[in-house]
Design a protein around this nucleic acid. Sequence first.
DNA 1: AATTTGTTTGTTGAGACAACCAATTAATAG
DNA 2: CTATTAATTGGTTGTCTCAACAAACAAATT
Lengths: 412, 412
Amino acid sequence: MRQINLSVIMHHLRENAPVSRAALAEMTGLNKTTVSSLVHELIERKFVREVGFEPPGSGRGVGRLAVLLTLNPVAGYILSGEIGVDFLSVICTDFAPETIWRHTEAINPDMGQQVIFDHLLALLHQGLSHGCETCNTLLGVAVGVPGLVDQANGMLLFAPNLRWENVPLGAWLQGYFEAPIIVDNEANLAALGEHYFGAAQGYEDVLYISAGVGLGGGIVHGGRIYTGVTGFGAEFGHMTMDPEGELCNCGNRGCWETQVSQRALFRYLRRGVGQGRKSLLSEMTEGNLGRLTVPLVVEAARAGDALTLEALQVIGTHLGIGIASLVNALNPELVVFGGILSLAGDFLLPVVENELQRRGLRWNRNATQVALARHGFDACVIGGVARIFQAVLAEPDTIRRENAWKMVTENV
Amino acid sequence: MRQINLSVIMHHLRENAPVSRAALAEMTGLNKTTVSSLVHELIERKFVREVGFEPPGSGRGVGRLAVLLTLNPVAGYILSGEIGVDFLSVICTDFAPETIWRHTEAINPDMGQQVIFDHLLALLHQGLSHGCETCNTLLGVAVGVPGLVDQANGMLLFAPNLRWENVPLGAWLQGYFEAPIIVDNEANLAALGEHYFGAAQGYEDVLYISAGVGLGGGIVHGGRIYTGVTGFGAEFGHMTMDPEGELCNCGNRGCWETQVSQRALFRYLRRGVGQGRKSLLSEMTEGNLGRLTVPLVVEAARAGDALTLEALQVIGTHLGIGIASLVNALNPELVVFGGILSLAGDFLLPVVENELQRRGLRWNRNATQVALARHGFDACVIGGVARIFQAVLAEPDTIRRENAWKMVTENV
DNA sequence: AATTTGTTTGTTGAGACAACCAATTAATAG
DNA sequence: CTATTAATTGGTTGTCTCAACAAACAAATT
């Protein structure tokens, strides 16, 4: 009961800070004495702090000045990392959350699991030392991975692009940090990140679609990540869109990600050029279309290159068809489009909107907006921060501040 | 708090009755005094009753005999109706819930909204008089419709097959019954019905797919109907499966329901016969394939008719592809297949399973079972009962027993 | 003086705990 | 074999704690 109300106060503080006790009481419907008591506890726990008085004469009329409250930025720090296919990324934020430190490092899957994990650990350790300087308490560690995760025990079940299988990441990390550990799918975290700190703020039912090397997805329902029964929901990329389509890495044919992904885009362009069509991209890559990158494609599109625009039109159409299907099936409030392909959002989104108008049921499509993700490369790590943030907001009374950060420093 | 615990007790009673107070305490983790107090209140409110002692010597060992508790069948009665495209159906059940009374009536949309509503009201009224004889208290009225419903106010937004739009069914019913009114989509209710009383008992994350005239769907997530943001989720039938496919009633092309529905099945068969292929169905319908019905098709399939088997194979493949996509996207525990087409389940399900094996991601498909719906024609009304049941279990202390049934009897 | 903020003080309600009574089975003594 | 007793489980009665709430009040402002 008290835990629930503490959490309610924290949530309202997050969304409305700075705000007074009286205002919190009104918002939450709780009695003001109750709010006072809860706030007192939160201040003691250092999650909340007073930040002076409401400036007098701010149009509020007569009465005693209100004491404004905010979440305490130095309540603790959060570590969030991502294991990408060819990079590691770690950020450390305070509770504001502002980034205190960040670092990215190139890897490749051939380095081997153990080496990559050690690198990740070293980065996290560096982030930790920066974090504890100002914030003292480690609130949690989140790690996003490009694969299926069994949330319950942080087991990475299957990451085809890393060629990893059944890696107990959660257990490994638990051995090094005396704080809650979250391991989750990269797109799921990114979805939550957009919900907390990005384009989806204020929306409780969000579909996130991340198109990059492949096509991943995340569902936020009621403000929480929707995990299917085995925690492996929202693999939109492997919905069959064309039963006789291109072969997919997963072994099936015509998966959505064979139509909408960086790979699909490049394939279309290469085929076009291969068939003798002219394109700015040939010059931009000096004839080596193996060097294609999404930014290059966007540049070509802006320059009006016909083949590129056509490719984006085709990809956008497929993206739109899939989104319309999902909108009909799930009736979300907002669809957020992210991933590296979202750099081409200016060209893709109008096509998507058009397709959604054509194929979405009237009521569903009218209730749904489509937006570009705010966080690009950082989407996942920011989502990890959001995930820890969420865990702390949900049960602020269970954080053990004393021994919250205690790292086994041997052999790191 | 108390409300929550009352609800917890009710749920455990539903799932484990008959059961003793001590066992409830153990299951819920509540203190046994608390359980006693809660049970006492529930007995006073007539939702629960004692049903004698646990038979001695039932392998339980020593100790005082336990008093067994169950939900009280005559706690009240539930009215549930369905407005179909060509029928009305109403049942009245007690709180067991056992059917006390039921009736079905043919209609057709041309009769007009007001006439159909009056017929529905008359049926509900008949059910009510049967219900109050034994059970006294009306616990709620549920009505399922083949269309989009805004749950909040029971507004039927759009029912293409009835050609109704913006009908305030909830408000109308509220004027006649002094009890909670639920108006919801037919497939959503059916999904909940399978969860409470059918093939999906014990599964908390269920996809329900109903193939009949069209293809509808329902999602049960965490034991509750998943409504999208506007309460219009799970319109699986209008996911685009083939961008250039057949024209659908909704105006788009290649919707799933153009591939998997009674209409799609009959179309395939008629085309086959039209192309000169032999089929038992020609004889069975005496050459008039306009008379096709699903039972006839099933009969032909059982007799080994090649065209029929081929048709079911094709439909089953499309069904399987769609289910695989949904399984990948939503990772449910169970997929339940219902609707009139489920009569052909023996022929369709193996094909579906096969397609699921091919197209489902390994982890998802392994976590997901596919089952036939238990309730056929009654799925929706039973779901309506479940919906009311759920509402009562959720807040047993808010039911006003005194004036719960008070019907405006004028002009009915 | 009126108004708004926030605290102090006391009340209410709900669940937890301990002790107790009740009803049964199992063991044991005669 | 029977009567008695111990052990065990079911359920209730009082007491305690804790959280939310209400009313009164103090402080700071217009």
